[in-house]
């Protein structure tokens, strides 16, 4: 089963994404910080990461840089309420950038595209 790791500081968002993506047949783990994310990645391998940018005590772009350094082949989707980070050079190393929305189709499509790439 394809394993997806979600990093978002909002508990309800984590819960929602777990529900939505589980129903799509993915094995989903959701964490709230960068530290928890690296712990999960060290413990078990993941096929894809969905990463929020504006985290409570951290920057998603910093985490992105570290993830790409430690796990170069791991697909990462930046998932933010902010469109402005699209123009930020540091976000360009992500494999995709999807705006948060109640419509999950864009996110689901992008996951499928990256998993099967």
């Amino acid at each position: 089963m394809i394993k997806v790791l979600i990093i978002d500081d909002e508990v309800h968002v984590r819960k929602l994404y777990q529900e939505v993506l589980s129903r799509e047949g993915y094995q989903v783990t959701a964490v709230g910080t960068g530290g928890e994310a690296f712990a999960a990645l060290n413990e078990s391998g993941y096929d894809l990461v969905i990463l929020d940018i504006e985290l409570e005590n951290d920057s998603g772009l910093n985490i992105l840089k570290q993830l790409k350094s430690s796990y170069p082949g791991l697909p990462i989707i930046l998932n933010s309420a902010y469109a402005v980070y699209k123009a930020d050079f540091h976000s360009w190393v992500a494999d995709a950038y999807v705006l948060k929305s109640s419509d999950f189709k864009p996110l689901k499509d992008k996951i499928k595209e990256l998993i099967h790439a």
Binding site: K100, S102, D103
Partner: peptide, 24 residues
């Protein structure tokens, strides 16, 4: 407006997302 909008986007995502789940 940017900060207000972003603060609203997350709850809207959650509300709409769960509503979608229920409908589905």
């Amino acid at each position: 407006t940017s900060s207000i909008a972003h603060e609203l986007r997350n709850p809207l995502t959650v509300i709409g997302g769960f509503a979608n789940l229920l409908v589905s």
